[in-house]
Write a protein that binds this DNA or RNA. Sequence first.
DNA 1: AACCAGGACGTGA
DNA 2: TCACGTCATGGT
Length: 237
Amino acid sequence: MNKIYQIYQILYKKYGPQGWWPFINYEGTNENKQGSAQGYHPLDYSFPRDTDEVFEVCIGSILTQNTSFASVVKSLHALNSRAALRPKALKEMDPDTLKLAIRPSGYYNQKALYIREFLSFFEALDGAVPSRKELLAVRGIGEETADSILLYGYNQPEFIVDAYTKRILLELGMIDKKARYRDIKMFIQESLKKNIKDEKELLRVYQEYHALLVNHAKLFYSKKPYAKGCFLKEQFR
DNA sequence: AACCAGGACGTGA
DNA sequence: TCACGTCATGGT
C-alpha cells in the first residue's frame, strides 16, 4: 500500500464519508459544514439526480473559484430564489441581475461572463458528457474547475487538485513545490490505481478523497504556519 | 485590519 | 514556459 492510499484510509477513518458535492436543495446538506465529521449526503452516490443538479455542480464549480463555498451557497440560493438555477431560466436572466445574484461569491463581473459562456456550451451538449478538452476550451474553466465538473457533475474519474491538495502534499514532503497540476494529478491517480482495481470504487475514492483533503485542510492548513497539530504530518515525516 | 478563500486569465519577459 | 498583476466579496 502506497503513501497516497494510506493517507486516504487515515482520512476516511477519521472523518468518514463526505458525500460531495453539496446541493442546496438537498435536506441532508449542511451549509455550515466546516471541518466537521459530518458529510453532505454520506454514502449516497446517486447524485447528481437530474440535469438541474448537474447544472448546479457546474455553476457552483465556477463560482467557488478562489472563494469559500459558504459564499457560493448564498449566490446559489439567490439564483434559486429566482428559479434561475436551471439553464433555460438562467439564460433569460439579464446580465446585471445575474451579477447581483452572484455578488456574494466575488469576481462577479468575470464570473457572470464565465457563466454566460458556459450556458451556451451546456445547452449545446444537450445532455451529453463533455470531454475535459471541451471544458477547458470554455472561457473561465481551467483545470481544477473542469475536473470538479467532471468528477462531481458527471461522475468521471478525474482527480481534483486544488490549493489544499498541493499544500498538504507539499507539507508531507510528497511533491515538489514546483510540481504542476498535471504532475500532482497523475501522481495521485496512478498511486490509487495501483491499489484499487474496481472502476466504480476508484471513482468513489476520487470523490471522497478530494472532499476529505478539503475537510482536513480547513482544520489544519488554513492559517500559517500550516500543519500545526496535523496527525498526518506526525505519522509521515 | 490584514489576510485568506474548494482559480483563471492576460501580459510581458 | 514562467512570474506576476488583476479580478472582489465576505469571514476571521
